Amino acid sequence: MAIVTLAEAKTQVGIAPTDTSKDAVLMNYVDAIASTVENYKLEIVEAREFTEERVLNGGSFVLANSPVLSLISVETVDGTTVWDVNNLHVSRAGVVRVMSGASVSGTVAVTYRAGYETVPENYKRGALVILQHVWETQRGVGQVGTGVIGQEEGTYGQLSTYSLPRKALEWLGVPNPVVM
């Protein structure tokens, strides 16, 4: 699932739905923007599967990516021990706890699904603003003070232009806190 659909992207940049001449480049932009949004928000937006290898000595542990949707499997990397994921609890933040049975220990591979099943609307809107910004700046359509390219595209003292427009950041909200 993409952060925005091709149809949404075309509407945002003013391409007719029947014009397929720029579909490939437009979807390349959408894919790149999704990782930009994830890096800014410090969370996974597009739902997908991850596998992490960990050396554990029992007790709870925290997965690297959130929000976590589900645990798929937990097993030693050599496959000799498999934990029943139904006996484990994982929070949206990625904290895994054993609810019953043996504690998770050894060199283990944890496979799980993280992200959003439905991308939050404000994330979609922020991604579309970024898309329009990149699209217009690459094609010379926008000008300072017009359209998506506004005052945030000017320079501030010695600083050059922003990569993420202020309008997009307002849609996206503040990044999630980093928990150590």
Rank of each mutant, 00 (worst) to 15 (best):
V55W: 00
H133T: 00
V90H: 14
V95R: 12
S103I: 07
S103R: 06
A114D: 08
T107C: 01
H133A: 06
V141S: 10
V90F: 05
T107N: 12
L69F: 02
L56N: 03
S91C: 03
V119T: 12
S70Q: 13
S100E: 14
S91G: 08
L128Q: 09
Y123A: 03
R97S: 09
I72G: 07
L128C: 11
V95F: 00
T137C: 06
T118F: 09
E52L: 03
T80W: 03
G79K: 02
T81M: 05
Y123R: 08
T137G: 04
L71A: 06
N57W: 05
V95S: 05
V85W: 03
G94W: 12
G94Q: 12
G106Q: 07
G115H: 06
H89E: 15
A127Q: 09
A127I: 08
S73G: 06
V68L: 01
S105M: 10
T137E: 09
G94E: 11
R48P: 07
R48V: 05
N122P: 06
G115S: 11
H133D: 03
V110Q: 08
V82T: 15
S105Y: 10
R48C: 13
E121R: 03
V98D: 02
S91D: 05
V141I: 15
A102M: 14
V134T: 08
V55I: 07
G106A: 05
R139N: 10
R92P: 00
V68H: 02
E53F: 12
Y112F: 14
G59M: 01
L56M: 07
V74W: 09
V95M: 08
E117L: 09
H133W: 06
S105H: 08
Y123H: 08
F61M: 12
R113N: 08
E53N: 11
H89K: 15
G94C: 11
R97G: 00
V85D: 02
L88F: 13
L128M: 12
V129E: 02
S66E: 14
G101I: 11
A102W: 11
V134K: 10
F61W: 15
S103G: 15
R125L: 15
G106M: 06
A127P: 10
H133L: 00
F61E: 13
V62F: 02
V98I: 02
H89P: 00
L131P: 13
L131K: 11
T137R: 15
D78C: 14
R125D: 14
R97E: 07
